[in-house]
């Protein structure tokens, strides 16, 4: 490649006249050309080398700036720095464990609160069913008390309610009146009232509880069924897996009683 270039550049000089003077000038021209080429090559090499030097210099300065700050430190300094770092690590570790504990506590509190809430809700449901402010469903029985002679007295119906409660009835309604803890049965035969509401025969009692136990309690000798029949009425008991007690009682606001802690 270099030879080709040289010959091509020298041909024009060769061409016009091959005088002895030219012959004499040729080596110096060659020399000059070669010299110029060498100069150019050298300049390029110098440029590349200095460029590399500048690059390496900048890179080295940068990397020294960033990560080798402790290279020149004395041993005692390094030891004290190490101690500081260790102490800092201990402090940070302690902080981590404290934060962990706090987090655990908070999570615990959270789950405790959730559990308490669930429990409170369950309690509210139970109490609602108990005092009649919530509709309920479940196994139980449907008892119809017919009273053709209007002879069923409040005492008989109250006895039936008490017997059902005694047999484990969880909640019940008579006709469309929910029976609660303070329900009162008043009036006289044929014109009974429960909590002030008129109920008419036949009295349909819907009870939720163990159907077997409830039915047995109604049928014991001298029990509710016997009393009703004595009064001229009749009792029909149908056990069911699904009784819906959906009459509701308004919730009494306690006027005097305050909860104690």
């Amino acid at each position: 490649m270099a030879d080709e270039d040289t010959s091509r550049e020298s041909t024009p000089d060769d061409g016009p006249g091959a005088t002895p003077q030219d012959d004499a000038a040729r080596p110096s021209l060659w020399h000059r050309l070669r010299h110029r080429r060498r100069d150019r090559l050298a300049a390029a090499l110098i440029g590349v080398l200095t460029l590399l030097l500048g690059f390496a210099f900048a890179v080295q300065v940068r990397s020294t700036d960033t990560d080798t700050a402790y290279t020149g430190a004395r041993e005692e300094d390094l030891v004290s720095i190490l101690d500081q770092v260790n102490a800092r690590e201990d402090r940070l570790r302690q902080q981590i464990s404290e934060q962990r504990a706090a987090l655990e506590q908070l999570t615990d509190t959270d789950s405790q609160a959730a559990a308490a809430l669930a429990e409170a809700q369950q309690r509210a449901t139970e109490l609602g069913i108990l005092n009649g402010s919530l509709a309920a469903q479940g196994p139980g029985l449907r008892m119809t008390i017919s009273d053709p002679g209007d002879d069923i007295t409040p005492a008989v119906l109250l006895n039936a309610v008490q017997e059902l409660r005694g047999a484990g009835a969880e909640t019940m309604q008579v006709d469309d009146v929910r029976i609660g803890v303070s329900s009162a049965i008043t009036g006289s035969g044929g014109a009974l009232q429960i909590d002030g509401q008129d109920v008419d025969a036949p009295y349909v009692v819907l009870v939720i509880g163990d159907p077997q136990v409830l039915a047995t309690a109604m049928d014991i000798p001298g029990g509710v069924s016997a009393a009703v029949r004595r009064e001229g009425g009749d009792v029909t008991i149908v056990q069911s897996d699904q009784v819906v007690v959906d009459a509701l009682r308004p919730l009494d606001q306690p006027q005097y009683a305050q909860p104690t802690d």
Binding site: A43, T50, R62
Partner: peptide, 18 residues
Amino acid sequence: IPILGLAVGVVLGLLLDP
């Protein structure tokens, strides 16, 4: 040329920051 090379090298090194 050397000054130019040095300057370009330094600038390259600072810019590329390898």
